[in-house]
């Protein structure tokens, strides 16, 4: 593949930046993917002005088309910010990428004006299209990551809501874990439990995994780390609802439960917790006779 030449592009853009900007903006405003409902004209002009200025400056500095280098840091920052803002407004990733790709036409027009020989013109057009493609694709990557972090935050909120820490009795807390556990979710739940231990002054916490179908090494390790942390703080944990399949998995994974107490059911765990805290439960004979 021929090496990318961008030297003439750099020089031509530097000389004709205002003209190119005007043509580009006009074209964007006329385009079908304009989305005037999401972005007003002055913001579009400002985005374009900023990007073109940074792009032109970077071309003067850059020695090649490696957009990951420090010469392109300003351009990347501007694109990241534009991409992020458009994502928040509701633009699709393609629409945002089009912002960069649409610069090709006005630039090619300008190149055709300035370069009369076919061979050099072809090389500069190739160089331009290569670099703008890379920058356009960058916006989609940024978009993906922004969406992923929104989803992650929403997941965390859901986790907090769906795995409440409940107080079973004075000094006894319980966390019923439901569904498939992943590393991130387990961490959030565990941090929440430890904070509740402090806030309520509860010395015992029952972690019930009856509703958990499978446990992998990472999750098992998180559970053990939580128990260790609770002990360091001065509380203790009982893991309840360990089904035979999970017991098998734990043994196969080679996870060492050490001296962590486990009980097959939440009820048995509660009974143990009562015993440890000196609570006695008795049945009132008179009441049961009436039933």
């Amino acid at each position: 593949m021929p090496a990318i030449t961008l030297t003439r592009l750099a020089e031509i853009l530097a000389r004709h930046q205002d003209d190119v900007l005007r043509d580009w903006t006009t074209q964007q405003l006329k385009s079908a993917t304009r989305r005037s409902d999401l972005l007003n004209e002055s913001d579009l002009r400002e985005n374009s002005r900023q990007f073109l200025a940074a792009f032109t400056a970077a071309l003067q500095r850059a020695k090649g088309d490696d957009i990951t280098g420090s010469d392109w840091a300003d351009v990347r920052e501007i694109l990241t910010s534009i991409s992020g803002s458009r994502a928040t407004r509701g633009f699709t990733p393609s629409e945002t990428a089009m912002f960069v790709f649409s610069l090709k036409e006005p630039v090619f027009d300008r190149l055709r004006h300035e370069i009369k020989d076919v061979q050099p013109l072809a090389e500069e057009i190739w160089g331009t299209t290569t670099i703008l493609d890379k920058l356009g694709l960058l916006t989609t990557e940024v978009y993906q990551r922004a969406r992923e972090s929104v989803i992650k935050r929403q997941q965390e909120d859901l986790i907090e809501l769906s795995t409440p820490v409940v107080k079973l009795w004075d000094g006894i807390l319980a966390v019923p874990l439901i569904g498939t556990l992943d590393s991130a979710r387990t961490q959030v739940v565990m941090e929440n439990l430890l904070q509740q231990i402090v806030d309520t002054g509860s010395g015992l916490a029952i972690i019930d995994i009856t509703g958990v179908p499978t446990v992998d090494t990472l999750v098992a390790q998180h559970l053990l780390k939580t128990v260790a942390a609770a002990r360091l703080m001065g509380a203790d944990c009982i893991i309840s609802g360990v089904r035979p399949q999970i017991a098998q998995t734990i043994v196969h994974l080679g996870v060492n439960l050490g001296d962590v107490i486990t009980k097959p059911t939440l009820a048995l765990a509660l009974a143990l917790a009562f015993k440890r805290t000196g609570v006695v439960v008795s049945r009132n004979a008179a009441l049961t006779a009436q039933v």
Binding site: R76, E77, T80, G84, E141, V142, R145, A146, S149
Partner: peptide, 8 residues
């Protein structure tokens, strides 16, 4: 040093 790697 405060680093920036794209979006993180």
């Amino acid at each position: 040093e405060r680093l920036s790697d794209g979006s993180r």
